[in-house]
Design a protein around this nucleic acid. Structure first.
Lengths: 370, 370
DNA sequence: TTGTAGGCGTTATCAA
DNA sequence: TTGATAACGCCTACAA
């Protein structure tokens, strides 16, 4: 039998359920019942217990509860790098949803590195998180790990990038469509030699964007030129290098597959004395609130970042709850935001002098002009 | 006595230390010793145990370990909003340091709200995090909570904002100095009527920036005008409103206390047909990699965000380890990054026509020109 | 060096 | 409705 702690109530440590039980002269069961307002506890006892809880300033130890219940109410989230401005809003969306459901977020940065990713997955599993949100790094998971993940039966939901070998549950953006829209818009703005600064093609969304780029060219009757495609890694530096590599081939339009690479790209363009939209048109991915106030005013394809995170958590929590419904990949729709870097205004003013200021863009469907 | 789980090794659940013990025909003690490579275990036994661990794919349950050791190797971190571009790099710094020391980060967003903050603190304490990193929301902590925090003896380290009532351990930036430098630079650039778009003055760093602003005016022989100071809340919207409110008083220089408000401010300026640096000089806080490629090229005061996070974790971990050294507030130095929005180049070219392009800024100490 | 048994703070089962 | 007691999975005196 369990012997309650010795005489005094407080010995420096936080009060436990036993202290409360003793203080209110009931059993731990009753206390537990009160805490989780379970099976109707008699009014008088309940009052006594609540009194004792207040008096002792008792807070349940969630670690002990987790051990007993085999649930931690904690979600692990692995992103490549929270300092990449794309992810904070996704994480925020996830945290908001998690909070709503009584969950917390354990955040990890993988730097898109398999090693870190694996270590973090193992650690999160050891910490017994109830589920994991993963933006998979390029490359394969060690088979042993994959098997172990199946065994422990911890649900995963992929974010932004698919990786069917692990799970088919994923929340992503419609990258094909986004890239397609971006490139079509560049073409409509009069660009003929359109280049691509791509993400790492081993990553699912980079490949989807590449295909959207490719198909849009065809649809617009433009030629696909291998040398106008440069594979970066979604980081600034690679966009910078891409810029320097690309301009020798004289593209007149560029679609850059994310914001960080766009920044690097623009840096390179500036060094070469080229500016936008005069010398080239540009459409970027990910939108940010500040892009509307700085020049060049970037035309972008915005992805619903916050929703990406929250939807992923919602799906994950369904799985944690044991939902057996078949795997889904939720594909959220992007939104073209036309500003000035694509050169649409310039294009129109050339065709129709005197019309430079008012950007009129018909047949654009859901496109937003800001 | 504890009875090992029934016959079979695997009954759907993850292997426990008992399973390993049985498989390798030793006691749990030996297994535990092997796992934590403790007291010299005999070679043969050790080999048997390791073999069993591999075979059963055993991973220690860190929840159970936490309960037994009363340590979770988890740090709670509460920031106002991870989607505010200032914080991701701070969190990254914290996560890097935490990772190095074998800790994980539980991330919460308070929205600078006392309610959320209190709930999150309580939850983190219940989850028995080993320590908490807090960017305190404006306002007072409920006394009961404060008392409870003392009782459970969980160390706190404040980040970016001090709040001595809770603890004097803090890692902050030298905001007074940063603001002082910013305003002096504005003055050196020929601005005479300098305005301030401030953060919430209840927040320690907003107050420090205000004082730096105030003292710099005096040092530069400029007049302090109440109406040229507007108190915002560090969010975009408030910067926008400040812009609209401010220009009727015709300031020729503005120091905006953070990036988000700067964005809002510039939006307002644009709506009023004013631009920078022609119509007003501007110095902002927080620098970002992309500010060098967009126009206006902002002159900013950069804070060492990554270091802010990592230093905070280092200090926190010292406290977790029981360090009794007296409380410290580590004040990290900011760095003025001169670009174009301050109008320095413009100023010099006016004084000395033909000199517009080469920005020469002597007597600037550690200032960086990019 | 190795094993035994009790404790960490909950929940959950089964009687009373 | 309540109470006693066994899990949960690990660590750690104390013994052997």
């Amino acid at each position: 039998m369990r012997v309650p702690r010795s005489g005094t109530k407080k010995n420096g440590k936080a009060a436990s359920i036993y202290d409360v039980a003793r203080e209110s002269r009931v059993s731990v069961f009753t206390v537990s019942a009160v805490i989780n307002n379970k099976s109707h506890v008699g009014k008088k006892l309940r009052a006594r217990v609540e009194e004792a809880i207040r008096k002792l300033n008792y807070r349940p130890n969630l670690i002990a509860r987790s051990l007993a219940q085999q649930r931690t109410h904690t979600i692990g989230m692995i992103v490549p790098d929270i300092a990449n401005p794309f992810f904070p809003m996704v994480v925020r969306g996830a945290e908001d949803a998690a909070q709503r459901h009584g969950y917390n977020l354990l955040l990890c940065n993988s730097d898109d590195t398999l090693d870190k990713e694996q270590n973090q997955i193992e650690l999160l599993l050891s910490k017994r998180v109830d589920g994991i949100l993963l933006t998979k790094a390029a490359g394969e998971l060690r088979p042993g790990l994959r098997q172990m993940i199946q065994e422990v039966n911890t649900p995963f939901v992929l974010v932004m990038r698919t990786y069917p070998k692990l799970t088919k549950d994923a929340v992503i953006s419609d990258d094909y469509q986004g890239a397609y829209d971006a490139v079509c818009h560049l073409a409509r703005s009069g660009r003929r030699r359109i280049a691509l600064v791509s993400g790492p093609l081993k990553v699912s969304n980079a490949m989807a964007r590449f295909q959207g780029f490719h198909d849009a060219l065809k649809a617009q009757g433009l030629r696909f030129e291998e040398k106008l495609v440069i594979e970066g890694d979604y980081r600034m530096e690679s966009g910078y290098r891409a810029g320097h590599a690309l301009f020798s081939h004289q593209p007149d339009g560029i679609y850059v597959a994310n914001y960080l690479m766009t920044v690097g790209f623009l840096k390179a363009a500036e060094e070469m004395g080229l500016s936008c939209p005069e010398d080239f048109g540009l459409v970027s991915f990910d939108d940010y609130p500040w892009l509307g106030v700085f020049r060049p005013k970037l035309t972008t394809v915005e992805l619903p970042k916050h929703q990406l995170g929250s939807a992923a958590v919602e799906l994950l929590i369904e799985r944690i709850g044991g939902s057996k419904k078949k795997a889904v990949v939720r594909k959220l729709q992007p939104e073209l935001r036309i500003r000035e870097s694509c050169g649409m205004a310039l294009h129109l003013s050339r065709a129709e002098p005197g019309n430079a200021v008012s950007v009129v863009a018909p047949h654009l469907g859901a496109a937003t002009i800001r």
